Each structure stands twice: as structure tokens, then as C-alpha cells.
Amino acid sequence: MHGSRWFQVALSAVPGLLLAGFGAVHPAALDAATAPSWTTLHIILLPVFPLLAAAQWFLLASAPLWLRWPGRLATFGFAAFYGGLDAVAGIAAGTVTEAQHGVTPEVGSLFEVGDLLGHIGAGCFLAATVLIIAATTARAGWRALPGAAFLLIASVSFLDSHIFWPHGVFTMIGVAIGMSLLQYAGSAVPGTPTAPARTWCRASQVR
């Protein structure tokens, strides 16, 4: 079980680290020269951003119902609306810029819609983060504080950073650190039985 615990801690960091890596090669601006790579990168990112929602979903697994389901609703909102940003301001804007050989008013309109979707999605991410922190802190006490600090600061930064270098890259690294530390804190609560132990206890009670 110890190995499984460390695997879960490491897995919690993967989405943020992946996005930090993609952010390091993200074009700084969209123009005719960067349009092909802009479009290709956002096609690749389309299935990656929802991994952040999946990580939040699993961090809420041990939360009480009154925190778990609002939190998971927020993670769904993040995946839906931030995916819209990726599709509109990423794939669509890059495709139009390449076809028209430059940024046009139509591209500006796409960015307006994409920015709105992105702000809603990032707001949902922050809301889920607050509920994760509340649930983990109630369960693990002071052990949750380092992860809570990293994840909360990074989630606030995410409201306007996207994954652009350098702000967005460090934001995603902060998300990775915060999620892994919270996963560690939540799984290290003294006196919390492992899943096999709970099964054995129930079997003992039946006998």
C-alpha cells in the first residue's frame, strides 16, 4: 500500500507538469508565422487540460458529500469551459490566422469568446481548489497547509496566466506541487485504515 500511495502522489503531479512542459514551448503570440504551431499545439492540448479536472476529481474522493459533489461539479465546469477556450482561441484562431495570412478582426472576435470561456473555466478550477483544500484540511489538519498554499496561489494565478511562459509555466508547476502535496497529506492521516483494512474490519463484524 505504501507504493500505491506514492504512485498516487506522483500521478497527481502529472497533469500540471505536462502542461508546464507544453507551456514552455507555447508561442508567445499568434501571427502568420506561429499560426501552424499554435493550432497544432492546441489540438494536442485538447485532451490534456481535462487531466487537471481528473486530478481534482480524485482529490475530492475522500471529501464529505457536501464538499465532494459541488467540487466535482466545479471540476466538470473547468473541463467543459476551458476546453472551449482551447478550441476557440487555440484551434479556431490559429486556423483562421493561417488561412488569412495574419491576425484579422475575425480572430479578435474568437479571442473575445475564448477569453470569456477561459475565465469561467479558470474560475471553476479555483472553486474546486477551495473545496479540495477545505476537505483535505478538515481531514489532515496542518499537514494540508503546504499543499493548500501552493495550489491556492497557483489557482489564483491561473485566472489570468493560461500556460504561457514564464507566468503560466510556473503556475502549472505550482499546481503540480500543490496537488501532490495535498494527495500526500490526505493519504497520511494517522489512524485512517487502508482499503484492505476496512474490508477486513467489515468481514470481522459479519462473523
Score class of each variant (00 low, 15 high):
G71A: 06
M179E: 11
A93C: 06
A63N: 02
V9C: 08
S37I: 08
R198V: 15
V156E: 15
G23Y: 02
F58A: 11
G94C: 00
A128K: 01
P27Y: 00
M179W: 12
A188W: 06
V48R: 00
S187Y: 06
F78K: 03
L51S: 09
A188H: 10
T97Y: 07
H42R: 01
L182P: 05
S4M: 15
G21H: 08
P105H: 11
H26P: 12
H2C: 03
Q56D: 14
E112S: 14
S204G: 15
T104N: 09
P36W: 03
L19A: 08
H101G: 06
A197K: 10
E98W: 05
T199R: 14
L110Q: 00
I120D: 06
I133R: 00
G174W: 00
G186E: 03
H162E: 12
G21T: 12
T171E: 10
V9N: 13
M1Q: 15
P196W: 09
S180Y: 05
G108V: 05
G118Y: 13
H162W: 12
H167W: 10
T194V: 09
E98K: 07
A24E: 06
S4C: 10
V48F: 04
L110M: 11
F111N: 06
L181C: 07
G23R: 00
R68P: 10
G186N: 05
L110Y: 02
P27K: 01
A127Q: 05
H42D: 03
L45Q: 10
T75R: 07
I153P: 06
V96L: 14
A33P: 02
G84E: 11
V25D: 00
G123D: 07
A87C: 12
G102F: 08
I44V: 15
T171K: 04
A87G: 11
Q100A: 14
P36D: 05
V107Y: 05
T97F: 08
P15Q: 06
L65C: 07
A28T: 07
A176F: 04
A154W: 02
H101R: 13
A53I: 01
H162T: 12
L51F: 09
A80K: 04
A148L: 03
V107N: 04
L73A: 15
L181E: 03
G94T: 00
A176Y: 00
R143P: 04
R139D: 10
G118I: 13
F22E: 02
S155T: 05
A188Y: 07
F150T: 00
F150R: 01
L117N: 07
A79K: 06
G21E: 07
P27M: 00
L182F: 08
A28E: 12
